[in-house]
């Protein structure tokens, strides 16, 4: 069974998304002076890209150094900030329209995993992450996004990031016997659930959960913990079988890449991905490793529809995945080393 929003075949998908992205380039050039000047400086044919490779892109860093927006200030309802390694924070301005598109895309993508019925959600984070403030972090955005799709939600940690055993017990007593969702940031899950001295008898009761986790890989890999170690540990201690790593970024909230049942992160009809050579930024073939460029048809309030990330990975095209999702599959392999980031400055 082919599952929406992954139902489009490769040809239809690339036609649809290219048209949407070209339209977005025009929209942002018309409404964001800084972006327009950037395009002009590179002599870009605005809205005239013949394929994804020709679409202009911004380096993720642009959102740290510039205040980029394509709407008037009074339309901005939320500003998302993310801390970077450099200390500079990126600022992503979101209006009502973009916000709706983000929620909808996330909801459609998530439903392909959990079905149409809302499920209870155990959030491995502190309750303050669920506060709907006007300025919030990427982590909080993920928490809010998933919360919107939950029938009930409970935060598993207290404000000091210690496990709130009472709350977890209460949640598992109410919902633990049937399917539920668990959501959290990878490192926080590792830190609070795996290396903490939690009674295994309690955590064993989490086996019916479907875990979605992402972000914070740098911290884990610095501890030498791989994706498979993470999965194995959660399986052996908690009996968790359904574990989905996801790849997403503050600049493209909503159009996330969630790892499917067969280990592939598919692009939905709202996103696409290319890999570029780290040295000359030429587009690489499927299977070749390079810098990840992500596209999203969602951002209208800021020019974030085509972004060159600082992450490395490779892709598979036109996979006939047994999970029933069409679309390019992405495999993320980590961040560009500090010394190599210099290469990116040349495009900017």
């Amino acid at each position: 069974m082919i599952r929406p929003p992954f139902e489009l075949n490769a040809i239809k998908k690339s036609e649809l998304i290219l048209a949407q992205l070209n339209k977005l380039t025009c929209h942002h050039a018309d409404n964001c002076d800084t972006y327009k000047r950037y395009l002009d400086a590179y002599g870009v044919d605005i809205g005239g890209a013949n394929d994804l490779a020709e679409l202009p892109y911004l380096p993720a860093r642009a959102f740290k150094e510039l205040d980029l927006k394509s709407v008037v200030d009074k339309s901005i309802t939320k500003t998302l900030t993310s801390s970077g390694t450099s200390g500079l924070r990126s600022r992503i301005h979101i209006d009502g329209r973009t916000s709706i598109k983000q929620s909808r895309a996330l909801s459609e993508i998530l439903k392909s995993y959990i079905g149409v019925k809302k499920l209870p959600l155990l959030i491995i984070d502190a309750p303050s992450m669920g506060d709907n403030a006007s300025v919030f972090s990427a982590r909080s955005a993920g928490t809010l996004g998933f919360s919107g799709l939950a029938s009930d939600k409970v935060f598993a940690l207290d404000e000091d990031f210690n496990l709130n055993i009472k709350e977890i017990e209460r949640f598992l007593t109410r919902f633990g016997d049937s399917e539920f969702m668990i959501f959290g940031f990878t490192f926080l899950i590792w830190q609070s659930l795996v290396i903490n001295d939690v009674p295994d008898a309690l955590l064993r009761r989490m086996a019916n959960g479907r875990l979605f986790h992402g972000g914070g890989w740098k911290k884990l890999s610095s501890l030498g913990i791989s994706d498979s170690t993470f999965k194995n540990e959660l399986f052996s201690r908690f009996g968790l079988i359904n574990i989905h790593n996801y790849y997403g970024m503050a600049e493209q909230t909503g159009s996330v890449f969630i790892e499917c049942e067969h280990g592939r992160m598919h692009a939905s009809k709202y996103s696409e991905v290319l890999i570029r050579n780290l040295n000359d930024f030429e587009v690489l073939q499927a299977g070749e490793k390079g810098v990840i460029q992500v596209f999203s048809s969602l951002p209208e309030s800021y020019p974030g529809h085509s972004i060159l990330t600082e992450d490395l990975g490779w892709i598979e095209h036109d996979v006939l995945c047994q999970c029933g999702r069409n679309g390019t599959a992405i495999h993320v392999e980590g961040r560009i080393e500090r010394a190599e980031i210099r290469g990116c400055s040349d495009v900017y």
């Binding site: 309802t77 009502g96 916000s99 709706i100 929620s103 909808r104 909801s107 919107g148």
Partner: peptide
């Protein structure tokens, strides 16, 4: 009727 309410309405 904010963006969250909008999603509930559409659903």
């Amino acid at each position: 009727w904010d963006s969250v309410g909008h999603m509930s309405l559409v659903a």
